[in-house]
Computed example of a mutant assay.
Amino acid sequence: MNAHEIDYEIHGDDMQFVEVELDPEESVVAEAGGMMMMDSGIDMETIFGDGGGATKGLFGKLMGAGKRVLTGESLFMTVFTNIGHGKKKVSFAAPYPGKIIPMDLDELGGKIVCQKDSFLCAAKGVSIGIDFQKKLGTGFFGGEGFIMQKLEGDGLAFLHAGGTIIRKDLQPGEVLKVDTGCLVAMTRDVDYNIEYVGKVKTALFGGEGLFFATLKGPGSVWVQSLPFSRLAERVLVNATVPGKKRDEGGILGGLGDLFGDR
Rank of each mutant, 00 (worst) to 15 (best):
K61F: 08
C114F: 09
K216I: 01
D189K: 11
V235C: 04
Y96H: 00
D131P: 01
E73A: 14
P242Q: 01
K56H: 01
G86W: 02
E248F: 11
P172W: 04
K124N: 11
L108W: 04
K124W: 09
T164N: 10
Y192F: 08
V113K: 11
E248D: 14
M37G: 11
Q16E: 03
K88H: 15
I6W: 05
V221H: 01
V20N: 02
G198Q: 15
T240S: 10
K244T: 10
G109H: 02
M15K: 06
E26R: 12
V113Y: 12
D13N: 10
A203H: 03
D7E: 12
G53K: 00
G155R: 00
L136I: 03
E233A: 12
G250N: 04
F259K: 13
L215V: 03
F132S: 15
K87I: 12
L236N: 15
L159F: 09
G181P: 01
F76G: 08
C121K: 15
V18A: 07
L226K: 12
L170K: 15
S118T: 12
T55M: 00
G209M: 10
M44H: 13
V90F: 14
S27Y: 13
V237M: 00
G33D: 08
K111Q: 08
T81W: 02
P227H: 08
L120Y: 05
E26P: 03
A185L: 00
D191W: 09
